[in-house]
Write a protein that binds this DNA or RNA. Structure first.
Lengths: 106, 106
DNA sequence: GTGGTTAATCGTCATTTGACGATAAAATGG
DNA sequence: CCATTTTATCGTCAAATGACGATTAACCAC
């Protein structure tokens, strides 16, 4: 995963409302999905929620599933996990003891 | 770690240049720290780099250490790890099988 | 087809971001 | 003390963000 991709996902998650939306979607996922249910859990206008959802969509963190007259969104756990892996790998590379020191401590 | 904190850190890391700066700082950390070395590794103005550094500072991802006439910055591995933990915990809570389903699969 | 519901899109607006050059501020070397 | 180096800060500017209301589009149910 490139830096650009990590940055895009991080940026998408870098807003408390969007973290909240992810949480709400994940919670509703058992059984029924949701869409405007998100809107009245938040004290925000419908268009604002739709914008936030679009950001999450563009980052690949959720997926749209049209269901009749409403749109449901599914959290993409794969992508969340992928970011977790990429992040873990990155900060592992950040740790001390790089190439020319970890070989011979003598 | 609250959603706001996670969002602040994610936002700070949600830019490829800042990811790069973190990487550069982490790399230089063995032996000597650095400051303007970052600037000429990137094709960006000094003031721009300083701004990005300030964002990382405010998010607690790096720490300033004045060393003579120059300022060195140290990656805060603790905070990076804390975000990793918070993130892992969060997406673990996102997983399916919530409270009323995981008990009795019968 | 008409009406109602849901949700995306549009237009607007204030604020923030990202970039830059220019300017100050602090420590070093002479 | 003066010049130099380093770096933070200031002012500016274009572009993006976050929020909103209003409008449009799509899909039922009559």
């Amino acid at each position: 995963m490139r830096d650009d991709d990590i940055a895009i996902i991080m940026r998408a998650m870098g807003h408390p409302v969007r973290l909240n939306i992810l949480r709400i979607l994940a919670r509703q996922e058992r059984g029924e999905c949701c869409c405007a249910d998100v809107t009245d859990e938040l004290t925000l206008a419908q268009s604002t929620v739709s914008q936030h959802i679009k950001v999450l969509l563009d980052a690949g963190l959720i997926e749209r599933k049209p269901r009749g007259t409403r749109n449901c969104y599914i959290v993409q756990h794969d992508r969340l996990a992928a970011l977790g892996d990429a992040y873990a790998g990155m900060i592992a590379g950040f740790s001390p003891a790089p190439s020319n020191l970890e070989a011979e401590p003598a």
